[in-house]
Amino acid sequence: MAAEAIDLSQLPRGYPKKVWTQDNGTAVVATGQEGGCSKVHAEVAEQTADHVKILLVEETPDPPGICTMDLRYPPVAVSLSAPLEGRKVVLEQKDVKVPR
């Protein structure tokens, strides 16, 4: 995937920036970031003729409880309704609290 086809400007500083496609362009995979008790997953927020917006959602339990202090970088994937082809991928990151 060409670098100009990816908009990473909405990701926090230091966030992983690896993105690729699978399944003939119908799946987009990005490297997420999670740590301690949090878990990351990806969601398609928007699909248009010129771009696909993907949210990397980090869910943290509330209250957090006892958690390790490690960082993990798992791949997270989304399925598209049509192959990516020439559309731009826009990545955004969001933190959410989830009840324990």
Rank of each mutant, 00 (worst) to 15 (best):
M1N: 07
A2V: 05
A2L: 07
E4R: 13
D7F: 12
D7W: 06
S9F: 01
Q10C: 08
P12R: 06
P12V: 04
R13K: 15
R13T: 12
R13G: 10
G14T: 03
Y15L: 05
P16E: 05
P16L: 03
V19W: 06
W20Q: 05
W20Y: 11
T21S: 13
Q22E: 15
D23S: 10
D23C: 03
N24Q: 14
N24L: 09
T26F: 11
A27V: 11
V28Y: 13
V28E: 09
V29F: 03
A30Y: 00
A30F: 00
A30K: 01
T31S: 04
G32K: 03
Q33R: 14
E34P: 00
E34H: 01
E34V: 00
G35D: 04
G35A: 06
G36D: 06
G36C: 11
G36F: 04
C37S: 09
C37V: 08
C37A: 12
S38C: 05
S38D: 04
S38H: 02
K39D: 07
V40R: 01
V40L: 04
A42R: 00
A42S: 05
A42H: 00
V44K: 12
V44P: 06
V44E: 08
Q47I: 11
T48K: 09
A49R: 10
D50L: 07
H51P: 04
H51W: 06
V52M: 02
V52W: 02
I54K: 02
I54H: 03
I54W: 02
L55V: 11
L56Y: 02
V57Y: 00
V57N: 00
E58K: 05
E59I: 03
P61L: 12
D62H: 15
D62T: 15
P63E: 02
P64N: 05
G65Y: 05
I66W: 09
I66S: 10
I66E: 12
T68L: 09
T68S: 14
T68Y: 10
M69N: 10
D70G: 11
R72T: 07
R72L: 02
P75V: 03
V76Q: 03
A77S: 13
V78E: 07
V78H: 06
V78M: 07
V78D: 10
S79T: 15
S79D: 14
S79H: 14
S81Y: 06
S81I: 13
A82C: 08
A82S: 15
L84V: 14
L84H: 10
L84C: 13
E85A: 15
E85I: 13
E85R: 15
G86T: 08
R87Q: 06
V90D: 06
V90Y: 10
V90I: 15
V90M: 10
L91N: 02
E92Y: 07
Q93C: 00
K94M: 12
V96R: 07
V96N: 07
V96E: 13
V96W: 04
K97R: 14
V98F: 13
P99M: 08
P99T: 09
R100A: 15
